[in-house]
Amino acid sequence: MSGKLIIDGPRESDLQLHAEELYRESRNDVYAYLITLGLAPPLAQDTAQEVFLRYYVTRQRGETVENPRAWIFRVAHNLGLNVRARQSRVHPIDENVEKRLTDESADPERGAIDRQRRQRVEKAIGDLSGQQKQCLFLRAEGLRYREIAEAIGISSSSVSEFLKRAVTKLRKAANE
């Protein structure tokens, strides 16, 4: 066995710097996404770190990644589902959101921007399907439809369909 490092592509140190930069920029977003998938915080944090190490390994092997941010969400999604299946229970994010909504009910700023409307929309968001929520989340993180599709393993047209249905429900809630 040889211990010699053979890297095809960018220099090793450049790759590490790049991976570290991506890690610093996106780790909290990936962590948040894993929490919304139902992972317990310690597992979500470990999994997030694992995602970035895998990114580094992938690049180290000489593979190109067109959109690193989309790539890490795709890997986070798959890894997250796998981890979720192994953990003893799903940790819903919604409990925390509910608590926060209650805590903020007296927020004057919220009152100024039509608190009731927001609450109706937020309730409607809570009622969306898991896939609709995932599509909205990843869209809000800046992923294109094609990238969302790759991340969660569905077709691009399904992403469009899920988003349309979600938006229809949110519009309905907002206009009630």
Partner: peptide, 10 residues
């Protein structure tokens, strides 16, 4: 709402 409600990393 969603992002701030995410518990901080442990």
């Amino acid at each position: 709402t969603l992002k701030p409600a995410v518990p901080p990393p442990p």
